[in-house]
């Protein structure tokens, strides 16, 4: 079980997909306007990454290495289609607000990257741990960005319709730029600089 824990912990900080590996930036920036969206995206990535890691680890013995990338992409695309249909049926609001980024999970570099770099070389159990660790790392990054953006951009914190608090001045005069696209670049740039400064993230 030691290896399981190690693979899980690795994805959290040391190889955090967003901040350290700079993978999956498109969804991290685009859907981090609210915590709801961040959690929905995490759910989609969790299902797809877990499924693709399990399937690819299971078939890694029979896949000829020359055609492995197309096979991986078909596996991932099928899983994404499944997730799309599930979201459309059971979480229609989430489906609307994630919009084009739900089908775009297919080309999220995190998923193909883990399939290629990890699941195609490791047994199923370790691949599950890897998928969970990377997803939690992805979730932490998304939550961090969307938390800051939501508080500064709307002046209040609410998750799935449940209001936590509204800030006194910011609630009436929110800094709208933070929920607009440009705010995403600003926040993620400052967060990366902060992580470099504190030494969590290695310099180039």
């Amino acid at each position: 079980m030691g290896k399981f824990g190690k693979e899980f912990a690795k994805g959290l900080i040391l190889s955090n997909p967003v901040f350290v590996l700079a993978l999956g930036l498109c969804p991290a920036l685009a859907i981090s306007t609210s915590i709801d969206n961040a959690l929905g995206m995490t759910l989609a990535v969790l299902i797809v990454l877990l499924g693709s890691n399990i399937i690819i680890a299971a078939i890694r013995g029979f896949v000829p290495s020359i055609t492995r990338i197309p096979i991986f992409i078909v596996v991932i695309a099928t899983l994404v289609t499944v997730v799309n249909l599930i979201f459309h049926a059971y979480l229609p609001d989430m489906y609307e607000s994630l919009g084009i980024f739900l089908p775009l999970v297919v080309v999220n570099c995190i998923i193909l990257g883990r399939a290629e770099a990890f699941a195609s070389k490791n047994p199923i159990l370790h691949s599950i741990a890897d998928a969970l660790g990377i997803t939690v790392g992805f979730m932490l990054a998304l939550l961090m960005i969307s938390f800051i953006r939501q508080i500064l951009g709307t002046g209040s914190l609410s998750v799935f319709g449940f209001d936590f608090f509204t800030l006194p001045v910011l609630g009436e005069h929110p800094i709208v730029i933070f929920v607009l696209p440009y705010g995403a670049f600003l926040i993620i740039g400052l967060l990366m600089a902060l992580f470099k400064r504190t030494g969590v993230m290695k310099g180039e």
Binding site: A22, I177, L180, P181, Y182, G183, F185, L186, I188, G189, L190, M192, A193, L194, K196, R197, G203, E204
Partner: peptide
Amino acid sequence: TPKSMRGLPIAFLIAALLGLAFS
């Protein structure tokens, strides 16, 4: 550029400014 801003962080900030200009 300040040491911790070099590379990706400053690139993101520039992207934010470009985005503002394009808005």
